[in-house]
Simulated scan of single mutants.
Amino acid sequence: MVTTSSEPIHNRLTMLRAERGISRRELAEALGVHYQTVGYLERGEYAPSLHLALRIAAYFEVPVEVVFSLDPFPRLGS
Results as ranks from 00 to 15, higher is better:
57 A>F: 06
4 T>A: 13
39 G>D: 04
10 H>I: 07
28 A>N: 08
25 R>S: 12
54 L>I: 03
45 E>S: 02
62 V>L: 14
40 Y>D: 00
9 I>L: 11
12 R>M: 03
21 G>H: 10
1 M>I: 09
38 V>I: 14
44 G>W: 08
70 L>C: 14
57 A>R: 02
54 L>R: 03
46 Y>I: 00
57 A>L: 10
66 V>L: 12
56 I>C: 02
44 G>A: 00
48 P>H: 00
68 F>K: 07
61 E>T: 11
48 P>F: 01
36 Q>A: 03
47 A>K: 01
67 V>K: 10
32 G>I: 09
67 V>W: 08
70 L>N: 14
44 G>K: 03
23 S>H: 09
43 R>C: 01
9 I>T: 11
12 R>N: 04
4 T>W: 11
56 I>F: 02
59 Y>A: 08
66 V>S: 12
15 M>N: 12
1 M>G: 10
68 F>L: 12
25 R>P: 07
41 L>K: 09
38 V>L: 05
61 E>G: 01
63 P>M: 13
72 P>N: 08
58 A>S: 15
1 M>R: 06
25 R>G: 00
73 F>Y: 14
60 F>L: 07
21 G>A: 09
70 L>H: 14
19 E>A: 15
78 S>H: 12
77 G>Q: 09
50 L>K: 03
40 Y>M: 11
66 V>Y: 03
47 A>F: 05
77 G>M: 07
76 L>Q: 14
4 T>D: 11
47 A>P: 08
65 E>L: 13
31 L>H: 01
44 G>N: 06
68 F>T: 04
66 V>C: 12
72 P>G: 01
42 E>A: 03
49 S>M: 04
32 G>E: 07
61 E>Q: 15
29 E>A: 13
72 P>M: 11
21 G>C: 07
37 T>W: 00
5 S>R: 05
20 R>M: 02
6 S>T: 14
53 A>G: 04
54 L>H: 00
53 A>Y: 05
31 L>V: 07
71 D>P: 02
6 S>W: 13
57 A>P: 10
33 V>P: 04
61 E>I: 04
74 P>G: 11
24 R>L: 12
13 L>C: 09
31 L>K: 01
47 A>V: 04
17 R>M: 15
16 L>R: 11
53 A>C: 01
38 V>G: 09
8 P>K: 08
47 A>H: 05
9 I>V: 15
63 P>C: 13
41 L>A: 05
4 T>M: 14
65 E>F: 12
1 M>W: 01
3 T>Q: 09
73 F>M: 12
51 H>Q: 10
53 A>E: 02
31 L>F: 07
5 S>D: 14
75 R>P: 14
43 R>D: 08
74 P>H: 09
53 A>H: 03
6 S>H: 14
68 F>V: 09
63 P>F: 12
53 A>W: 05
37 T>F: 03
18 A>W: 10
34 H>P: 02
71 D>Q: 15
41 L>T: 04
2 V>Y: 05
38 V>M: 06
77 G>R: 10
78 S>N: 13
68 F>S: 07
30 A>V: 01
11 N>C: 00
19 E>Y: 13
9 I>P: 00
64 V>F: 02
40 Y>F: 12
34 H>C: 01
25 R>N: 11
22 I>R: 08
49 S>L: 03
50 L>S: 10
33 V>R: 08
41 L>V: 02
59 Y>I: 04
25 R>C: 00
77 G>N: 06
10 H>R: 00
17 R>P: 08
69 S>H: 12
20 R>A: 09
48 P>T: 05
